[in-house]
Design a protein around this nucleic acid. Sequence first.
RNA 1: GUCGGGGUGGCGAAAUGGCAGACGCACUAGCUUGAGGGGCUAGUUCUCGCAAGAGAGUGCAGGUUCGACUCCUGUCCCCGACACCA
Length: 953
Amino acid sequence: MSDKYQPSQFEKKWIKKWEKDKTYHTYDIKGKEKMYVLDMFPYPSGAGLHVGHPRGYTATDILSRYYRMNNYSVLHPMGWDAFGLPAENAAVKAKKNPIDIVPLNIANFKRQMQMLGFSYDWSREFSTTDPAYYKWTQWLFIQFFKMGLLYKKNTPINYCPKCKTGLAEEEVLANGTHERCGNVIEKKDLSQWLFRITAYADRLLKDLDGLQWPKGILEMQRNWIGRKEGININYRVLSQDDSLKILSRLNSSRLARLKQKVVQNFSSSSYQTIDKITCFTTRPDTNFGATFIVIAPEHGFVEKILNPKSQILNKFEISKSKREEIKKYVDQAKSKSQIERETEGRKKTGVFTGFYAINNLNGRLLPIWISDFVLMGFGTGAVVGVPGHDRRDFEFAKEYKIPVIRVVVGADKDNSEITKKEQVQEDEGIMINSQFLDGMDIHKATIKIMDYLEEKGWGKRKVTYHLRNWIFSRQRYWGEPIPMVYCQNCAINKRNYWNVKTGKEIKKNIEYGILNLESIPNSKFQILNSDLYGWFPLSEDKLPLELPYVKSYEPGESGESPLANIDSFVKTTCPNCGGPAKRETDTMPNWAGSCWYFIRFAQNQKSKIKDQSKESTSIENWKLEIENSAKNWLPVDWYFGGAEHAVLHLLYSRFWVKALQDLKLLDFSEPFLRLRNVGMVLAEDNHKMSKSLGNVINPDEVVKEYGADTMRMYEMFMAPFSQEIAWSTKTLQGVHRFLIRVWNIFQEFRIQNLEFRINKNTEDKKLINKLNQTITKVSQDITAVKYNTAIAMMMEFLNEWEKTCNMKHETCNIKNKNMSLRGSDPAKRGSDEAIPLTTDNAKKFLKILAPFAPFITEEIWRDVFNEKQSIHLSTWPKVEEIEMGDVEITIPVQVNGKLRGTVKIQNSEFRIQNLVVEKALKDENITKYLEGKKYRVIYVSGKILNIVLTGNI
RNA sequence: GUCGGGGUGGCGAAAUGGCAGACGCACUAGCUUGAGGGGCUAGUUCUCGCAAGAGAGUGCAGGUUCGACUCCUGUCCCCGACACCA
């Protein structure tokens, strides 16, 4: 064995040995505590791992190794998220079928992960693209369908013209582009499968409270779900006659207008109502200040007034020119993309419909406007305008000269007229001009007015969400085929899954308890949705529905998936009537596979299910898997990955788990207990790494030059774990030097005589104390995911070890590898004084280093210490109380809080305050500040002495 | 605009009420080496000083405390997410 640290000489050897010995195999729990440590599995791109990947993977590897050494049963698996747009787009570019490319990429990823020494149990590896896996994904889809959680709807959806597929709301960025390709999203009408994730909005929100996740991610999920409590208020749209009547009365009373008073003697029955507009508001307390109503261009009322045949126009004449004006505005607004609306700024535009509604509270006439600042997708698509207390409403009112009324006075007591945007009062305050609300604070008033409106039947409390139902169809080839069949004959006869009484299926549903939809909060599943006529799930024994291997799989222009062109795939028979039928040709989004892979890892026991492709998808088999294994491991204890999944994968998989819990297919409600985000690794030039900038660092090259341990330790040492950080080859070299020094100092144990190695009497007490501190610190830091400081502490220890070594034995200049002990005098070399640490204690240091640097520690463990079993299966060292003896400790001394000196005192005496003070007063540098002054003394035992001057004597 | 994270040497950073700058990088000087590289020793927050030492110092302004990077109030700036959400 060479003197020098040359990782390339032994790293490959240990990779093979660990694999052969199944060192990292997951064993049954057997009375131990379990620990499920998981990485967000990657999609295996053709480029291989970039240096960002190992940052997260090393962190989970350290945790896994730490828990193993602390006698936990650890599940630490890895797999491949290989379906979906990224893989498919890459394959399209390479002009190869993804089915052929993906396995090559996987092999490369796996090689690199093994190269880095990650302790995954590879026996549990799978890819989401394995039919043996996705048949279960399809099976789950069917269960969700049966419980009424999926529906089909022809709806305008976000469509990426470049990727030629529909997308979920979550996949569209704020600027209206596709999160994967950056292309601008269009709206397109497509018939889509949708998940009723909104039925779970409240639970998805509430359960966030119990999770140990980064605050930011929790907030992002809360915002995305966007729960708002408010009230839907119904406004009566008045007939033309009544509108004019009130208007003229108002005009005749200048005083009334000026004082913002309203018509008297109105009553709910005295006017003719021709329609109703419902507005959602979270601030009903301000409703006495409402002066207009705005509806979205897509609102149903717009349709009514533009249609010449509409009944409503019998009671309200609207001129042709007015109608054209309205139509022009609406058409313009609808054609504007999100980006266009953005770039135009927030300038308010709109058009008056000519219609008025009445505010039941005070009889005020509210002109009804149309504006694109009101979104059809939120609330009711209609807003009641309170310009005094909402900035957007104010901007709109200013633009169209609509009156502004103040109904809240803020803390500044300012009750002046609101004429500028800065005066708009959105904060806390006291009600005025609001009749029976006057004098209340806004919160009290909100409750009071809601009660009142409900009592009168004018409104109803309502909770709305930002969260939309999840569009689950993709018009692409590379995804799980959706296991649904459409039968036109059955559709014509209005047959669907639920109203066909085949007995057998219904019985199963009862068994699941899933037809009892009342048990699911907020669910208003419309199972008999007419869009579902003719749709039937595949019989479970027909799974997997395999993705056919085809030559041409490029997405088409038709808005259909390439599968639609394959007759042999499309044509099938109806599971209900047996007649000719068509398969669904859309596929699932790439999120489908990652929604439940962590469950599969926990189920996946190849010893029990020898040939997984033969395992049939049935509820019995699912439950067997859960009982046999998965329930012991789940949920995931530690989950590591990038923050970019905050509202995508992390929300979707939480949703699936809750649905599975309702199906009684799982018995927990949250998949990931602890979540940690890994910070991005930037290039050395502080830019994102990219091929075009030529600044990409390749892990293969780093490992080749410095070894895997250096790479691992550097990535943990570079910065706090969740922080974004630029690559630094210099810092990497610093870490490499540390490992060289570790190597060198342990070489000494190779040549010492055994008797010296175990001679406790020669040990250095201070060094042992430092070792104990290091063990404690490293143990704490690992579970706190503070690897940078854990490594710093180990470096500190090594520094002290070397120093002690050199002090004890002048010829033993251990840091200097060119001057190794081998060259020094053999007689001195073996002397007691040269050994500040026994073998046992040296091994402790090696053990705490092992999770960080598995190769070098294994090599030393086996080769220097001749151990027969892997260091990674050894036991984590315990801190042993040592007799320190009466050593000297140092106590800092402050005068008036400023450090002026220190006193040294024996360990046995530091508790005696008088003694410490006495010693301090012998220091001239301290007493010179005290001369002629009165003072008092604050002594924190063993920590600090502060002498506080209180005045002159 | 809202929410979240952050602001400490030349750089990455430590320290969560008790000696600010651990650890690493970079830098300086000396030693070692045929050279390059590497290694070793010492130093390295800033200002003044040969030094001993003194003063200042954790974005800014206040406050609490014997003592504040740490807690409180206000304010500025940077990063990230969301954003015409009624």
